[in-house]
């Protein structure tokens, strides 16, 4: 019986879309563009996030040891560092290793060391962050903690870059919530409106259904599928528009010197998961939009 009802609802949903062809098309196109705007935003966001993720992952904290700390003492400190959850790896770089590294990496700058009798480079720990520490707050907490150790002289990490990037991401995310919220409300409103027209046109029929023993859910069913189908069609349209933009418009945009940091960076499209989310969101909004319209007519 459930299957029978569902197939009836879907049939009726399509029928009333066909019946209100003009309004349905207007609604679907509007929803398509609204979701496209949101999808474009998601593309920008997910790409920025991917880029910053890469950078954060590479963030390495270097802690320099004070002079005169023996290798054994350094080993002790290393063990203590290990106990921090934020720290995934600690590599001790002794003064000699530091010097070796410097001379091999900067052969052309070897003259800087000429004439020095003593090795000027401090020993250090190269600290790799664990997964959960790859965000700004955790990094800063860790850096502050390390700063308090008397054996350490200074702590370094790619502060400025990560800081501003992470702030940028945060703002972007907030914008996304606002944008998504506004577009969502708009979409629900559009669907509620078109479904309301159908409901209104058939209100006598609904009253009859109620009087001959239809449950409210049975009466609502076709309208809910109508809204659902509109939402889904709008979502599919938006994905089509986004794909078109991604393949035909973005390359041109990137080629022209227009956008600063996206230039020449390979941008990826939305993941399949994201696309599925967009469709689910479209259908859900369609469902709630029509639920809003149909409820008021079922008082008999």
């Amino acid at each position: 019986m459930l299957v029978q009802n569902l197939s009836y609802f879907i049939e009726e949903g399509f029928r009333s879309l066909r019946h209100n062809r003009f309004m349905s098309v207007v609604a679907i196109v509007t929803i398509g563009f609204a979701l496209m705007i949101f999808g474009a935003f998601l593309i920008v966001y997910s790409n920025v996030q991917q880029i910053t993720d890469g950078w954060i992952r590479e963030v390495e904290v270097t802690a320099y040891l004070r002079e005169g700390i023996s290798d054994d003492a350094a080993d002790e400190i290393k063990k203590r560092l290990w106990e921090n959850r934020e720290i995934a790896s600690v590599v001790y770089v002794s003064r000699e290793q530091a010097l070796q590294r410097f001379t091999s990496e900067h052969a052309d700058a070897a003259y800087l060391l000429e004439g020095l009798t003593e090795n000027p480079l401090p020993a250090s720990f190269e600290i790799g962050l664990s997964r959960e520490a790859r965000n700004r707050e955790a990094v800063e907490r860790l850096v502050a903690k390390l700063g308090k150790l008397p054996e350490l002289e200074g702590v370094q990490y790619g502060e400025e870059w990560t800081k501003s990037l992470l702030t940028f991401l945060k703002i972007l995310r907030m914008l996304g919530f606002i944008l998504g919220g506004l577009l969502g409300v708009a979409i629900i409103f559009i669907i509620a409106n078109t479904v309301r027209l159908t409901v209104y046109a058939r209100r006598d029929e609904l009253a009859v259904m109620r009087l001959i023993g239809a449950t409210n859910w049975f009466i609502k069913g076709p309208f809910l599928t109508e809204g659902l189908l509109q939402g889904l069609a709008g979502a599919l349209l938006s994905v089509g528009l986004l794909l078109g933009m991604y393949h035909f418009w973005l390359p041109k945009l990137q080629a022209s010197a227009g956008i600063f940091f996206l230039q020449n960076v390979p941008l990826s499209f939305l993941s399949v998961e994201m696309l599925l989310w967009i469709m689910a969101a479209g259908m859900l909004m369609g469902f709630f939009g029509s639920l809003m319209s149909v409820g008021r007519f079922l008082r008999v």
Partner: peptide, 30 residues
């Protein structure tokens, strides 16, 4: 069963479909 004074038949459906519809509404097997 109610026979309404104004019949309350659905004008967009044929006689047969009016009856089938009433059965569908109450979940009669297809």
């Amino acid at each position: 069963g109610v026979v309404f004074q104004d019949f309350k038949l659905i004008h967009s459906k044929s006689v047969f479909d009016n009856i089938v519809f009433a059965l569908r509404v109450i979940g009669t097997p297809r």
